[in-house]
Amino acid sequence: MREPYQVLVIPYKIINDDIKFAIFSRSDMKCWQWIAGGGEDFDESIIESARREAYEEARIPLNSALIELDSRTTIPVEHCAGGFIWGDDVYVVEEYSFGVNVISDKLEISSEHKGFKWVSYDEAMELLKYDSNRSALWELNIRLLRQTN
Rank of each mutant, 00 (worst) to 15 (best):
I75S: 03
I75Y: 00
V77A: 00
V77R: 00
E78N: 12
H79D: 13
H79E: 15
H79A: 13
H79V: 08
H79I: 12
C80I: 11
C80F: 03
C80Y: 00
C80E: 11
A81T: 14
G82K: 05
G82P: 11
F84D: 14
F84N: 15
I85A: 09
I85P: 05
I85G: 02
I85S: 05
W86H: 11
G87S: 05
G87F: 08
G87K: 07
G87C: 02
D88I: 08
D88E: 14
D88L: 10
D88H: 12
D88M: 13
D88S: 15
D89Q: 10
V90T: 12
Y91S: 14
Y91M: 12
V93D: 08
E94Q: 13
E94T: 11
E94R: 06
E95A: 15
Y96V: 07
G99N: 02
V100W: 01
V100M: 02
V100L: 00
N101L: 14
N101H: 09
N101W: 07
I103S: 07
I103Y: 10
S104C: 08
S104F: 02
D105E: 13
D105T: 11
D105K: 05
L107K: 00
E108P: 00
I109L: 04
H113R: 04
H113F: 15
K114C: 09
K114T: 14
G115L: 01
F116E: 07
K117D: 08
K117H: 01
K117W: 00
W118Q: 03
W118N: 04
W118F: 03
V119S: 08
V119M: 01
Y121M: 04
Y121L: 02
Y121R: 04
Y121A: 00
D122H: 04
E123P: 09
E123S: 06
M125Y: 08
M125E: 12
L127V: 06
L127F: 05
L127A: 06
L128T: 08
L128R: 08
K129V: 07
K129L: 10
Y130S: 10
Y130Q: 13
D131F: 10
D131C: 08
D131T: 14
N133F: 06
R134W: 02
